[in-house]
């Protein structure tokens, strides 16, 4: 564990609390893509199967994994049941098969070992890299977002961005250790946030509303 990763994980935690806060206080999931949230459930469930196989890393690691699985399911409950009327599927139109198909194929080809757990692990890494796409697509379509929603996305983006210095740090402190699947997917994932951060810095942090140029 290093500081980059710790802050990254805390930022990931923060993003979830920001999202929960947004939904609970506005009593609405308007502006949130349920497709992206469903993909996160799939990401966590497929990646954290090692909770049940005895490959224990640390209490911190296990608690975080359980939290991510539990909170992502809870968010789906809020969106699908509790605040269902505020969920507008007509603007959440990204086709999930464009994501699920290619990531499944990639996982079957590029994995560390052709076993059930390893293929699912690789799948979850590829899936996480692009899971934000329905959300970004929705943002692009509506051209605007509530400020709290942009804070949620910023926290997620910071989480992903900080994993990169974490890998560089680990490379030098762990004798050239590198996890190519996580690194390549992680760089792709971080790159997807670049456009968003441009608008976030130039508008939201200057006190303006998040609005995309027409």
């Amino acid at each position: 564990m290093n500081l980059f990763r710790l802050v990254a994980d805390l930022s990931h935690l923060a993003s979830i609390f920001i999202l929960l806060h947004k939904i609970q206080t506005t009593r609405s999931c308007r502006g949130i893509s349920i497709k992206t949230q469903l993909l996160y459930v799939l990401v966590f469930v497929t990646r954290y199967l090692d909770l049940f196989t005895g490959d224990f890393v640390s209490i911190y690691n296990s608690v975080m994994k359980l939290f991510f699985i539990g909170s992502s399911c809870y968010i789906i409950y809020l969106m699908r049941i509790k605040y269902k009327p505020t969920n507008d599927p007509s603007i959440d139109t990204f086709r999930l098969e464009y994501i699920l198909g290619p990531t499944a194929v990639l996982a079957l080809i590029f994995n560390y070992k052709f076993t059930f757990l390893e293929v699912l692990w690789a799948f979850s890494i590829y899936l996480e890299a692009v899971a934000i796409l329905p959300q970004l697509f929705m943002l692009q379509r509506t051209g605007e977002a509530e400020t709290i929603t942009t804070h949620y996305l910023a926290a997620l983006g910071i989480y992903r961005g900080l994993y990169i210095p974490n890998w560089i740090y680990r490379y030098f402190t762990e004798g050239g250790a590198i996890d190519p699947i996580a690194v390549v997917a992680g760089i792709v994932q971080t790159a997807l946030y670049v456009d968003f951060f441009y608008v976030y810095f130039t508008k939201v942090l200057q006190g303006q509303k998040f609005e995309l140029p027409a």
């Binding site: 974490n166 250790a177 996890d179 190519p180 996580a182």
Partner: peptide, 10 residues
Amino acid sequence: VPAAEKHDEL
């Protein structure tokens, strides 16, 4: 085992 296969990150 290379670090990559430990999967010790979240």
